[in-house]
Design a protein around this nucleic acid. Structure first.
Length: 259
DNA sequence: ATGACAATCAGAGATTGA
C-alpha cells in the first residue's frame, strides 16, 4: 500500500499539478494539507472519478486537510483532541483496511512564527496534544501513522542552511524537543529509517530562488507506530515535482507498506 | 531592517505562510 503526504498550498490553485502527480504516482492513499478551502468547495468529484474516496476537514482561506483513498475510509474523525476551542482545521483521522488495518492520522502542524508569541505558544500546545493522541493510539498496539506537514526541521542535516533557522519556530530547541518527545514514545520516522543521504528536502521557499539553489528544508514527515514500522518497505520524496509548472512549495513524500 | 514569492478574499491591499 502506497501512502503519500502532500502539502498542496491551495486545492484551487494546485488542482492540475495534483491531478498529474496522482496519475503518475498512483498512491493508494493521499494525505493532503493546506487545502485552503471549505468542505463544500473541495472538488471531490474529480477525485472520485479517479476512484478515490474523499474526506475533508476544511476552513475558509487557510489550513484544511483531506484524505483521498482507493480503499474505504472508515471511522473518520476531524480535529485534534484536547482543545474544544481550537477552530483551526489541521487534523483528520481514518482507518484503511487492506491486508492490515492502518489508522491514518493526517496533520498540518502550526508554523509557530514569530517566536516568541501567541502563535508559537499555540504550536507547542498543539504538539502536546499530538503527543497525547499518539500515546492513546500506542496503547492499542496496532498499526497507525501520523503524517503531514510537521513544520519541524528535526536535525541540522535536514536544512541546506541550518544557521538561517536557529531562531525560527521550525528549528527552535523547544520545537525540536517537542518533536523528540513524540518520536521517543516509540515511533519510527520513516524517511531516516531508510535513507541517510544528505540534502534531502521536502520544502523550498518560493522566494530568493530557493529551489534553483537547492536551499530547502525537510519538514514533511511520517511517524509510524511499531506495528506499522514493521510493515515499512520504502520511503521516498518526489523532489522533481517542485520544478514543474505552478508548483506547491512542498513536494510529496510517500511510504510503501506491506499492508 | 526590509523585501523577495505565492495564495486567499475580494475586488486593493492586508494576512498568512516558512
Amino acid at each position: 500500500m502506497k501512502i503519500a503526504s502532500f502539502n498542496i498550498n491551495g486545492i484551487k490553485a494546485r488542482l492540475p499539478a495534483l491531478m498529474d502527480w496522482l496519475d503518475e504516482a498512483q498512491p493508494d492513499v493521499a494525505i493532503l494539507q493546506e487545502i485552503k478551502s471549505i468542505d463544500e468547495n473541495f472538488p471531490r468529484e474529480v477525485f472520485e472519478d479517479k476512484g478515490y474516496n474523499v474526506e475533508t476537514h476544511g476552513q475558509k482561506s487557510f489550513n484544511g486537510v483531506a484524505l483521498l483513498s482507493k480503499l474505504p475510509l472508515e471511522d473518520v474523525t476531524r480535529g485534534l483532541p484536547g482543545d474544544d476551542a481550537d477552530e483551526q482545521a489541521r487534523y483528520i483521522e481514518a482507518t484503511v483496511v487492506g491486508d492490515h488495518a492502518v489508522r491514518i492520522c493526517g496533520l498540518y502542524l502550526p508554523n509557530g512564527n514569530p517566536v516568541p508569541g501567541p502563535k508559537y505558544d499555540y504550536k507547542l500546545a498543539w504538539m502536546k496534544r499530538l503527543q497525547a493522541r499518539a500515546e492513546e493510539l500506542l496503547a492499542a498496539e496496532e498499526p497507525f501513522l501520523m503524517a503531514g506537514d510537521y513544520n519541524i526541521i528535526p536535525q541540522p542535516e535536514d536544512a541546506a542552511r541550518p544557521q538561517d533557522w536557529v531562531e525560527d519556530a521550525l528549528f527552535r530547541p523547544e520545537s525540536r524537543e517537542a518533536w523528540r518527545k513524540i518520536v521517543n514514545l516509540g515511533l519510527t520516522e520513516a524517511f531516516r529509517a531508510r535513507n541517510q543521504a544528505p540534502e534531502q528536502y521536502s520544502f523550498w521557499d518560493f522566494q530568493r530562488g530557493a529551489w534553483q539553489r537547492n536551499d530547502g528544508i525537510r519538514i514533511d514527515h511520517f511517524l509510524l507506530s511499531p506495528e506499522c514500522a514493521d510493515l515499512l518497505t520504502d520511503c521516498q520524496i518526489d523532489k522533481e515535482v517542485r520544478g514543474r509548472e505552478k508548483p506547491s512549495d512542498h513536494v510529496p513524500v510517500w511510504i510503501e507498506l506491506a499492508a
